[in-house]
Structure formats: C-alpha cells, structure tokens
C-alpha cells in the first residue's frame, strides 16, 4: 500500500512534468505560427537569394576557365609565343592540307586526355577536311605506369597501318588498362587483345612493342614536347600554345572564326 502510494505520487509528479513540458512545446508552436509570417520568411528569402548568388558565381567561375583560354579573338594575344616544334614528329590525322592544325601532347593514361579524345573526334567530324590533329606522345612515366606501354602499342599498331584505330581503342577503354588507382599490372596483354581485335599480326606487334626503335620514336616526341608541355594534354592550335584547356564550344567558335576569316 505504502509502495503503491509512493509510486502514485511519483506518477503524479511525472505527469505534471509531462504536462508542463507539453504545454511548453505547444506554446512554442504557437509562438512560431504567430511570428512565422514576419520572422521566417525573411531568413528564408535571404537563404534562397544567397544560393542563387552562389550558383551565379559558380557558373561564372566555370565559364571563366574556358573564357580565359580566350574568346577566339584574344586567343592570339593571351597565348604564350613558345616556339612550336617543327612538324615531322607525331602522327597526323585528318587531311594533310587542312587549314587548321591542332597539335596535342598527350598521355594515353591521363584522364583529362581521355576526356578530350571524344571532344577532338567530334570536332574533326564536324569539320571534315578543315582540322588536322597532330598527336605527340608525352607519357608521364613517373605517375602513369602504363602510359609508355600504351604509346608503344599505338606506335606498334601504326607500323601495321592501324595507328588511329589503336589510338581510339586505347582512349575509349582507358579504364580497362589505365585506371590510376588500379593500373592493370600486365597492360601488354590488354594491348595485344586490341591488336588481335584490329586484325594485326600479333608476332610483329609484340616484336615492335619491345623494340628499342619504337621506344626511341616515342622518346623523340617527349624530347620535342619538353619545351612546350607543362601538363597533359597540352594543345598547340595554329602555332599558339593554349594556356588553358578549352571546351568543345571554344574550339568550335575558334574554327568558325578561322574559317570565316579564310574566305
């Protein structure tokens, strides 16, 4: 009985507290519903406005990168006048007499070069006969363990007349053999697969992959590129080193202006 009374009084205290807490809770709601119209809308408006401004700044910044590369009219002024290696090295894709020359110093294992592969392909498809691509090897051997092998594979395929077919396969399947976190430990096997896919003579291909002459040809590109390249890819457009990485739109704009000026 005593125990019952005790627990009953405890219950009473507890219920009293619950009631007080509840009324406090609901009162606070009252307070907010009354003041909602004045004290909540303004901060909310401010937050929305701030996000819009932040978005605007972000969009401006994201365009800035490609704008710095120059609206085509200023490209000549902003580009540094680094002497361009004389032609002869590198592989040329597209009409040899195309009015516009785009030189790329690329590393087959660099993700950015991989991103640019479809951009340049698209550009060349859009303007057939107007742009030629001169691709130079610039494998960053220190950080990209399979880049050299990829360059050798492309050159070896080139010996059998399928350089660009191999070039495309290598870039399109970059993740297969060149994932930077998990580079394929045996890239030669992957490239041999590609060679078979392209119908190349596998013996000749492997011989060439391992021949010092092929390696020398790749290294000759690197030697030439050393004067120009600050990172991969480096683009040289009509003799001007592009200080930044342009977008497809920028390229299209440039080509349109160039072609209009030539007419």
């Amino acid at each position: 009985m005593l125990l019952g009374n005790l627990s009953l009084s405890r219950w009473r205290i507890f219920l009293g507290q619950v009631r007080k807490n509840a009324s406090y809770f609901f009162h606070s709601f009252d307070y907010y519903s009354v003041t909602m119209s004045t004290s909540k809308t303004r901060p909310l408006l401010l937050i929305i406005l701030a996000v819009a401004i932040a978005g605007g700044i972000a969009i401006y910044m994201s365009r800035q990168g490609s704008a710095e590369t120059g609206s085509p009219s200023t490209a000549g002024e902003s580009a540094q006048s680094v002497p361009v290696p004389s032609p002869g090295g590198g592989r040329v894709r597209g009409a040899p007499d195309a009015p516009i020359t785009l030189v790329e110093y690329g590393d087959y294992q660099c993700p950015t070069c991989g991103l640019y592969h479809p951009i340049i392909t698209e550009l060349q498809n859009r303007y057939p006969g107007k742009i030629k691509l001169e691709y130079h090897h610039f494998p960053l051997i220190q950080s990209h363990s399979n880049a050299m092998a990829a360059s050798l594979a492309a050159e070896s395929a080139g010996e059998q007349g399928k350089y660009w077919e191999m070039h495309d396969l290598i870039f399109e399947h970059q993740r297969e053999w060149g994932d930077l976190q998990r580079p394929n430990p045996n890239p030669e096997a992957v490239f041999l697969q590609y060679a078979l896919q392209l119908g190349l003579d596998s013996n000749k291909f492997m011989q060439s992959m391992r021949s010092p002459a092929t390696r020398d040809r790749v290294l000759a590109d690197v030697t030439k590129g050393n004067a120009v390249v600050k990172g991969t890819p480096t683009f040289v457009l009509d003799g001007q080193v592009l200080p930044n990485l342009p977008t497809l739109d920028w390229f299209v704009d440039y080509v349109d202006r160039r072609l209009a000026a030539n007419k």
Partner: peptide, 25 residues
C-alpha cells in the same frame, strides 16, 4: 556553397587545376 556548386557544375568536365596537381584524378 560556391565551391560545391562549382564542382557540381563542372562534374564530368575538365577542371582547371591551378595550384595543385591532379584535380581530374
């Protein structure tokens, strides 16, 4: 907000890496 929105917009596109090396990676 500006930083993350910028990266959100640039997702899948080349990002200029001026101070450090390896934004793409």
């Amino acid at each position: 907000l500006v930083d993350t929105l910028y990266l959100g917009i640039k997702r899948g596109k080349p990002v200029p890496c001026t101070i450090t090396n390896g934004c793409e990676e």
